[in-house]
Design a protein around this nucleic acid. Structure first.
Lengths: 223, 223
DNA sequence: ATTGTTGATTTTTGATCAAAAATCAAAGAT
DNA sequence: ATCTTTGATTTTTGATCAAAAATCAACAAT
């Protein structure tokens, strides 16, 4: 009895700050290369410096933040090589999560994915970027969670936190349309238990956004 | 000019504390389930509480430490399921690192691996546990580094930090002998460019130590 | 005797402060 | 005029302190 009770929210300040910073990172509110100052955040959030410091320390520990220009911490600007490395690792790890998720698929998973995809399609037609981002995150992690591997999910979570701040300087519209096609394919593949096809659609999704990003950052018109 | 100069070690206190804690974790000095108290460490290291707090925060952020029994942080005791999950993820990620490393193999890599293996063999005959542990770490990461993927290496590093504290309650002797056989096989496979065989030997190495651990923890004579 | 409650003690969490490091701009030298 | 250096200002890093939370043991009640 009482096996499934989760502990009452003991929300320490630093956890709240951490969660809000994560949300901001996922929404692309941080400009790579820009230092993130403790004072700015502590006054913006209305808390003292201490919990902010702790949250920033945690984000630095997982590589989401790093020293920018030798001074304070911030989202690091990534070289083409670093972006490629992140993509390659993401492809390996997220395709593995998909493989395990397909092995554990349930009807509940499929209906949940359908529900989220519908929200993504609606966000696309309404040009609701925020909504698309949030539901895209929900879609992928709904799938990854079905891998039943907390360790793998954690790794993917921090990888997303590292790349998210960079994915919002690209042309969004066409990407979203293509991305939704990939998601539709993923659902169909998962339904038919075809892990290989689900993985292929995922690879297209991840690689596509990577290509757009690299194009945006390193094409002729950029410094 | 001066492109390859790395910045002079500005060793902040918290980094030094962090590094020493990592070393202690790798050497099995922390008992899972036991709380790690800031005061203990700060007086043991002769520094104030602040840098210790930061180091512990960083270790908690990557899952090496966690809340034990609802109170302070410490190396968490792992259930059989959690150990299995860690093993499964390690197998996927570390075999991928080996695959990439084989693709990048150099003569220098092979001679370095040979050198480290020799040290491991000597440590085994001399029953030098510390030496074996250190060189085992050196061997694996020498190989993994050749994957040329900083992202992958970082992930593996924290995975090792999470499992290391648990690997020292097992019978060491026989494991070390078998492990050295696996390492020998890895070298030969890498030399001949046979990624699949190198991966198989690695799987044997990782799975073997996992099996020993699970046996030690959950066999009949344990509570 | 066992369970629950209370209070003392320990430990973490958050706030404030001081020192050290780094940045930026202005002044001086070549 | 340009480059270097110096000094003022900002920001991180480390130390100390106070408050809040949690642990443990002793005590009371059924």
């Amino acid at each position: 009895m009482f096996e499934n009770e989760k502990p009452i929210h003991k929300n320490k300040l630093n956890n709240q700050v951490f969660d809000r910073l994560c949300a901001l990172l996922r929404e692309g509110e941080f400009t790579p290369g820009e230092p993130v100052r403790v004072a700015r955040i502590s006054e913006a959030f209305g808390v003292s410096a201490m919990p902010v410091r702790e949250a920033l320390t945690r984000l630095s520990a997982v590589g989401v933040l790093a020293n920018v220009a030798g001074r304070s911490v911030g989202v690091p600007t990534l070289t083409r090589e670093e972006l490629t490395d992140l993509r390659d690792v993401r492809l390996e790890i997220e395709t593995k999560a998909v493989e395990w998720a397909v092995a554990n698929k349930t009807p509940a998973l499929l209906s949940e994915l359908e529900r989220i995809l519908a929200a993504m399609l609606q966000a696309e037609t309404e040009r609701d970027i925020q909504g698309f981002i949030k539901n895209n995150y929900a879609f992928h992690f709904c799938l990854y969670r079905q891998s039943q591997s907390p360790v793998l999910i954690d790794i993917i979570d921090t990888l997303w936190l590292r790349v998210s701040p960079h994915l919002y300087h690209t042309d969004q519209r066409s990407r979203h349309r293509i991305s939704n096609d990939n998601h539709q394919q993923i659902i169909e593949a998962v339904r038919s238990g075809d892990a290989v096809r689900a993985q292929a659609a995922l690879v297209a999704d991840v690689s596509g956004s990577y290509d757009d990003l690299v194009h945006a950052l390193y094409s002729a018109d950029s410094a």
